[in-house]
Computed example of a mutant assay.
Amino acid sequence: MEFLPENNDLIALGVSILAGSLVGLEREYKNKSAGFRTIVLICLGATAFTIASRHGVGSDDRIAANIITGIGFIGAGVIFKDKFSVMGLTTAAVIWMVAGIGMAAGIGYYGLSITLSVLTVLVLAMFNKVEHAMERIFLTRTLLVVFHDMDVKNLEELRRAMDNHHIKYARKTISKRAGKLSVVFELTADRKNLQHFNNEMMGLVYVEEFYYNS
């Protein structure tokens, strides 16, 4: 027998598209890898599978439960490690959250679905400002420095430069790459002092390159 969607199912799909669009627009505005269409489709897909689980024989909840497992693979796909930093964790968390929003719409909790999408946008927008405000007072970054050679004196010079800029530091790792000294530091400073230190590093002849974790 051909399945025809019920009115409640159509409402759930509409709410899912609306809720996903709210989050998707924010992600598209921030130019993230999972943009508007991706977020909406994830939300709509979670809703569709949840609806299918409700109409299954005996209301098979295993379909809805497996959404969580399946969405994990999508989330893992947007996380990648670049040198010594990990990127994409927030995007993965958004994908996970949007799947939950879609499931709420599929169950019939329309108000909860919209509320969760609004809260997600608020967290992404407002908490980002809170993080920037905190960074003005307390900023922690992981720094990788590659020196031109293996001369340890250059490392001592760099440490003195950090002290001059009132930067607290802890050496995490030290290694040799192609005859060059490579050191990873964890730095703690305010944004202004760190910026001045970065400007000085740009002119240090014994520093070949340096990277931050974000």
Rank of each mutant, 00 (worst) to 15 (best):
80 F>Y: 07
191 R>P: 00
206 Y>N: 01
153 K>S: 14
8 N>Q: 08
143 L>M: 15
48 A>G: 06
129 K>S: 11
148 H>P: 05
37 R>E: 00
134 M>H: 06
191 R>T: 11
158 L>G: 08
185 F>R: 07
183 V>Y: 04
97 M>Y: 06
26 E>H: 08
96 W>P: 01
66 N>Q: 15
19 A>K: 05
86 V>L: 13
182 S>T: 15
22 L>S: 01
106 G>A: 05
39 I>C: 02
174 I>H: 08
160 R>I: 05
113 S>V: 05
61 D>E: 13
134 M>K: 13
91 T>S: 12
153 K>D: 12
107 I>N: 05
18 L>I: 12
67 I>S: 04
205 V>N: 11
156 E>M: 12
185 F>M: 02
185 F>L: 04
65 A>M: 10
126 M>S: 12
65 A>S: 14
185 F>A: 05
89 L>K: 11
148 H>I: 14
19 A>S: 05
5 P>K: 02
171 R>C: 15
45 G>I: 08
66 N>Y: 10
188 T>V: 15
180 K>M: 00
88 G>T: 13
165 H>D: 08
124 L>W: 01
88 G>R: 14
59 S>L: 15
128 N>V: 08
80 F>Q: 07
69 T>E: 02
147 F>L: 04
104 A>V: 00
79 I>M: 09
35 G>E: 01
56 G>H: 04
93 A>N: 02
214 S>L: 14
42 I>K: 02
106 G>L: 06
143 L>D: 10
151 D>C: 14
124 L>K: 01
43 C>F: 06
11 I>A: 04
49 F>C: 08
39 I>F: 06
5 P>R: 03
95 I>K: 12
29 Y>M: 03
191 R>I: 10
145 V>A: 08
212 Y>Q: 02
94 V>W: 05
11 I>F: 02
197 F>E: 03
210 F>W: 12
185 F>H: 03
99 A>Y: 06
27 R>C: 02
32 K>M: 07
175 S>D: 08
146 V>S: 14
91 T>Q: 10
193 N>L: 08
17 I>Q: 00
206 Y>T: 01
184 V>A: 13
207 V>M: 11
163 D>W: 07
54 R>N: 10
46 A>P: 03
116 L>F: 07
37 R>Y: 04
3 F>E: 06
39 I>A: 09
173 T>W: 13
116 L>V: 08
156 E>V: 10
148 H>D: 15
159 R>T: 09
101 I>S: 01
213 N>V: 07
59 S>W: 12
155 L>M: 13
58 G>I: 09
146 V>H: 12
177 R>A: 12
88 G>V: 09
208 E>C: 12
68 I>T: 11
140 T>D: 11
